[in-house]
């Protein structure tokens, strides 16, 4: 009983949670969303560029995409965040005068996400039947327009679940930018929970930030399942009365 009380004290101290909650919501949630959304958008864009390069008929472009992908997928996230976030920040500071670690952190997250998203898009685009490109070319579309109008939209649709999974990963990985050193107003969900936990010696604030991560990621997980299901089953069409069956029915009545 004593152990149980101790555990509930350590993890579920409602008072400690309530104390940190306003800051988690006002500062942490906002910063996590800024980091995840902006690197998600940039990463998706760069990922598409990488995918197009990866299936290009130009060998050099394919190579560049390959090497980029291998490097950024093969190195731990925290290493890339430190290398880019700290390594490039003096240049950034000189150029803009800003000391915020966010832009370089977002850059690091985006570059990493792009490597994964590029592979996701590439596999999707390559899964589209060859006949689609052929039919589009036969109509008179150029390679470029065929990709744009016919092949890429279908490829992207097929990998939407994998893409959303990548966004979920990005929400979680955004916590790593705490390695770059954050001002009070720059802290995101993890850092606020962690700071509160270390000052109070109680883990409940971290549980509160974990709960907020779940508020972001669980809906996305269900979105994945929904899209996945929708793609597999297809959009439900309104069932059409079968003309022939109706006629046969009449015959049976007569």
């Amino acid at each position: 009983m004593n152990a149980l009380e101790q555990l509930s004290q350590t993890f579920f101290d409602w008072g400690a949670m309530a104390a940190v909650l306003p800051e988690l919501l006002a500062v942490g949630l906002r910063n996590t969303l800024i980091l995840a959304l902006s690197s998600g958008i940039i990463g998706t864009f760069l990922g598409m560029v990488l995918a197009i390069m990866g299936i290009s008929r130009n060998r050099l472009l394919r190579w560049v995409a390959r090497i980029y992908t291998d490097i950024f997928r093969g190195v731990p996230a925290v290493v890339i965040i430190l290398l880019i976030g700290i390594g490039l920040s003096p240049i950034y500071r000189q150029a803009t005068g800003s000391t915020s670690p966010f832009p370089m952190g977002i850059l690091a997250l985006s570059l990493m996400a792009a490597a994964y998203i590029g592979e996701i898009f590439r596999s999707g685009i390559q899964s589209v039947e060859k006949g689609q490109l052929e039919a589009s070319r036969a109509l008179g579309f150029s390679y470029r327009s065929s990709m744009q109008l016919v092949v890429v939209p279908q490829g992207v649709r097929r990998v939407l679940p994998a893409l959303v999974n990548q966004f979920i990963a990005l929400i979680k990985e955004s916590s790593l930018i705490y390695f770059l050193g954050l001002l009070t107003s720059e802290r995101e969900l993890f850092r606020i929970g962690n700071d509160a936990a270390s000052t109070t010696g109680n883990l409940s604030p971290l549980i509160a930030s974990a709960a907020l991560y779940l508020c972001l990621t669980i809906p996305l997980t269900h979105l994945v399942n929904y899209i996945d299901n929708r793609l597999r089953v297809g959009k439900r069409e309104k069932p059409e009365p079968d003309e022939l069956a109706a006629k046969i029915g009449e015959g049976a009545k007569a």
Partner: peptide, 20 residues
């Protein structure tokens, strides 16, 4: 070649309609 193909219609064994 793109302009040539606009003058020639083609129908395939597997239809190849755009499903999206």
């Amino acid at each position: 070649p793109d302009e040539l193909r606009r003058r020639i219609g083609m129908v395939f064994q597997q239809f190849n309609l755009f499903p999206h």
